[in-house]
Write a protein that binds this DNA or RNA. Structure first.
Lengths: 329, 329
DNA sequence: TCGCTTGACTAATGCGTATTAGCGACACCG
DNA sequence: CGGTGTCGCTAATACGCATTAGTCAAGCGA
């Protein structure tokens, strides 16, 4: 149309004004005019092929991104991720096509599409260590939302400070006279669980009180409550919000008052839907902020900046109404 | 590694078994072995450049996809979209990088990235007709979630049957003795609003009752209630759930009982957060199903199938407790 | 022995862009 | 008037794959 070469169009299109790229103002204007009148836009695909990046960030989750049953646990993460992606001018690619093997999605499979994106955000309670190791080994740019143990190398992440947040709750309970505490939950498996238990145990030890761990694999709330009462525990720290609610309900059914007869602390937000009117004491995971910062870290990595790639964010305490001075105090 | 050409690898990789493409079983196996051991995956970008498609579906919304303030109105759509995308083996590209001009995102702008995807799902109460027209004109494959008026040609969509659902509510009210109805809301602007009003007006006319339209631009719930009462309307149909709740609250404050003194019907789910204990009568928009089917239609279009590209889904009535027989009956 | 066929591949090309070396024209300087 | 820059632009190439025409060798019939 304008009689110039494709190269010139490319230069004009990208607004190149470098010292070694000179376009006569008149020519530039003619090209821009042609672009405007035709509504031409460069093919992003070809662009990516040539430029080696495309301002797309992948989002991989082992579970569906928009969970029907999972409550809305992931939603706040995504809000943060989207906000930051918008800010840094990137689009988000939800890797929904990853095939499900053995009940979970796989990152690596014959038709792996991770590389569609410049980098990738990993979301999920537990990430497969083998896949994580491979990502690290292949030097794929990625950031995990949630702390991860090393996997053949340090894993970039933005995590929540479960140990500190849990420890703070333990100290609060101790300050209220509790001496026999119990941690109800796995305390293992996902890093977030182990972190909670670690914070619990450390704080209990530091305060010189009795902190026991009660794994609850397969047991119902009633049995758990039995064990707690038999052991004369006065304050329960539940790894999982919903378990706490279930215990509180069983307790209520037995005529036990919370927190007068039994204190309850939830170590984080519900990951399973838990309908309740109880204002449970505990802390809030800074999910939105984690999502936001994960994108920030990833964007930094992609920009070639080399700063720290691991961040730990503080959790916000929730006063609630389920922690009170111990009965006998 | 295997001493074969790039072309052969490509053929093996794509599992081509056509009549005019023959690979010796031994060779095929060697290549597959090499692919497996190196973990090689084809670059999706290059693939797209060559093959002209990439199994990516774009999702464009004028508002942020993960709304913080918007309640979770869009969430169910996305659940459906994701589920179907997973099923058809496509990834989802959230077009978050679209720049905001005049308070809303733009589809078309100098760095348009729509074409990154094979096709695109459009989400949002109202889509800019000009942009819609351009999409149609350029023959971009896309499907709108929500019915759209023609824009220089028919617009592919999966919409909700607001006219029928609204009409059914009107008939229910008439059956309960209501003769003076009122439609509170814009009744214009987005197609979904116009559809509701149309269904309302048609059903009222068909039943031979008095159905008035009360636009509420800028007026508060109190003024609206004043107008309704002054006009001796017995049943209010609100376009917007939240408005209905607000009206009910003002009514309660004045000692009016719902539904004894005033019946209330909400024409769809809340698009603005509306905290209430009231079980409002009305209907539910099949949001998840709409999202699902939109992807289904889009996938069909991309596959070259030519079936109908416009679908209307029924809304599910919600009995609720705010519609009762008219007072004087 | 010479086509002819068939099987098994490869060379070459295109996709649409970004990038860079370099070329012709012109001005300026000594 | 030759040499040296500077401007403004283009030719050529790379990016990594899919596709297709075509090549080469082996087998086979006459």
């Amino acid at each position: 149309m304008t009689g110039v070469s494709q190269a010139t169009v490319s230069l004009v299109l990208n607004g190149r004004h470098d010292a070694d790229v000179r376009i006569a103002p008149g020519t530039r204007e003619r090209v821009l005019q042609a672009i405007r009148s035709t509504g031409y836009v460069a093919d992003p695909i070809a662009r990516r092929l040539a430029a080696r990046h495309n301002r797309i960030l992948g989002v991989f989750t082992y579970e569906p991104v928009f969970p029907a049953g999972l409550g809305d646990f992931y939603h706040p993460f995504l809000v943060g991720i989207e906000e930051c992606a918008e800010r840094v001018g990137c689009d988000l690619l939800l890797l929904t096509s990853a095939p499900v093997v053995d009940g979970r999605r796989r990152i690596f499979h014959p038709d792996n599409r991770l590389r569609l994106a410049d980098g990738c955000i990993l979301l999920g309670r537990s990430l497969d260590p083998a896949e994580l190791a491979r990502l690290v080994a292949e030097a794929q740019p990625f950031v995990s939302v949630g702390r991860r143990d090393d996997a053949g190398g340090p894993v970039p992440y933005v995590g929540a400070d479960y140990p500190a947040a849990t420890a703070a709750q333990v100290r609060a309970a101790v300050a209220l006279g509790h001496r026999r505490l119990v941690y109800v939950g796995q305390g293992a498996g996902p890093e977030s669980h182990a972190d909670r238990l670690r914070g619990f145990a450390a704080a209990a030890a530091a305060a010189g009180v009795d902190g026991r761990h009660l794994p609850i694999a397969g047991s119902g709330a009633a049995e758990v409550l039995d064990a707690i009462r038999a052991d004369r525990r006065t304050c329960v720290f539940v790894e999982e919000f919903a378990d706490g609610v279930a215990i509180a309900e069983v307790a209520a059914a037995r005529g036990l008052r919370v927190p007068e007869d039994l204190s309850l602390v939830a170590l984080g937000d519900p990951t399973r839907p838990a309908a309740t009117d109880i204002d449970v004491t505990g802390y809030r995971i800074p999910r939105r902020e984690m999502g936001w910062q994960a994108v920030e870290v990833l964007a930094g990595m992609l920009a070639g900046e080399d700063g720290p790639t691991q961040r730990i964010l503080a959790c916000e305490p929730v006063a609630g109404t389920t922690l009170a001075a111990v009965a006998g105090a």
